[in-house]
Design a binder for these strands. Structure first.
Lengths: 167, 167
DNA sequence: ACAGTGCACTTGAAGCTTCAAGTTGAAGCT
DNA sequence: AGCTTCAACTTGAAGCTTCAAGTGCACTGT
C-alpha cells in the first residue's frame, strides 16, 4: 500500500484512510458483495433462464394476495427504479409470466399480476436457487450465525437508504 | 447436504427451504448487497466520474510497486473477467489514467501501468469515497463490529469461489 | 369547469457487462 | 525448423441498467 496510513502530518489532501482492521474487513465485505449476487445469478440463469431481478419479481408477486401488486410498490421492495422494473416486467410479460392492468381504483397506478405460467416458473426455479443460497451463504457459517447478522445488515441498509432518499 | 433435521415428511424433491430466521436474515443481507455497491458507485460517479470498477483498478494499481501489474492478476484481484477488465482499461487508457505495454519478460502478458494523471485522479477521488464508506458502513455499526465480520465474509467468499472455479 | 401540478409509469438512447470468437506469443513435441 | 497446444488477452454483438424525456391520470385551487 502506498497509501499513507499514518495519522500524522499528511498533506491536507491526503484521504482519511480506513484504519487497518477496518480496511481489511471492508475489503472482505466488498469482495463478497461484488461476487455473491453475480454468482447466484449465474446459477439462476443457467438453471432457470431468469436473472436476479426477474426471479425476485416473480417471488414477490407470489407472496401477494391475488398475486397482484402495484408497480411502484414492487419497485420499492425490489430496490429497483421504476424504469428498470418497467423494462423487466415488459420482458416477463412477453414470456407470459406476468401481465399488467391499470389499477381499477386509480388509473395512475399499474398492477403487475403473476400468471399461472409465471407461478409455475417460480415453483420450478426456486429449489435450485434456495439450494445455491444455502451452499454459498448458510453452509459456510455456523448454525444461527446469519441470524445474528440480520440486524447488522438492517442498520447498514438504513444508512444506505438515508443516503439515497429521493433518488 | 448436512443437517436434515426432523422436518415433516416431504416429497423427496422438496427443497431445503430456509427456516424462518434464516430467511429474514438472508433477505436483510440480500437487500444490502443489492443496494450498497450501487449507492457507493452513484456517489463515485457524481463526485469523481468513475464507476466502482474503474476506481478499484486505479486503487489496485496504486498499491503496486512501480504502479504496474499484469492484466490477468488485476482481473483476479478485482473479481472481474479478463474481458470486462480489458474494456475498462481501454476506457481508462483513453482518459489517460492508465497505459498498457506488453510484458517485456513474456509477451503473452500485458502490463497495466498507472500514469501520473491516473494517480492524481485517484488521490483526488479517494477521500469522498472513503467518507461514503464510513457513512454507510462503519458509522451505523459499533466500533470494531465490522472487524468481527471480516472472517465471516471470508468464509462466504471461499464458498462462492468454490462454486465458480474455472468460470 | 378547467388549467395547473404532481405522480406513476413508459420509452429510447447510451453505457457497461457478458458471451462467444478471434489473435498472438510462448512452450512442447517431432 | 515446423506443428500443435495452451494461455492471455482483445474485439464485437447482445442484453440489461441507467438516465433523461415523454405521456397520462387524478387532484387542486380558482
Amino acid at each position: 500500500m502506498t497509501k499513507n496510513t499514518a495519522d500524522p502530518p499528511a498533506p491536507a489532501a491526503e484521504p482519511r484512510w480506513l484504519q487497518g482492521g477496518e480496511l481489511t474487513a471492508w475489503m472482505s465485505m466488498a469482495r463478497v458483495m461484488a461476487r455473491l449476487l453475480p454468482a447466484l445469478e449465474r446459477e439462476l440463469e443457467r438453471d432457470a433462464d431468469l436473472n436476479w431481478m426477474e426471479y425476485h419479481v416473480l417471488a414477490m408477486l407470489s407472496e401477494q394476495e391475488r398475486h397482484t401488486i402495484r408497480m411502484s410498490v414492487l419497485a420499492d421492495r425490489a430496490s429497483s427504479s421504476l424504469s428498470r422494473l418497467s423494462h423487466v416486467v415488459r420482458r416477463l410479460e412477453h414470456q407470459g409470466f406476468v401481465r399488467r392492468e391499470p389499477d381499477p381504483g386509480d388509473g395512475r397506478y399499474t398492477l403487475a399480476i403473476l400468471t399461472p405460467e409465471g407461478y409455475e416458473k417460480l415453483v420450478a426455479s426456486a429449489p435450485a436457487h434456495v439450494e445455491a443460497v444455502r451452499r454459498m451463504v448458510l453452509d459456510p457459517l455456523d448454525p444461527g450465525e446469519l441470524e445474528g447478522l440480520g440486524p447488522v445488515f438492517d442498520r447498514i441498509y438504513a444508512a444506505v437508504d438515508a443516503a439515497e432518499r429521493g433518488r
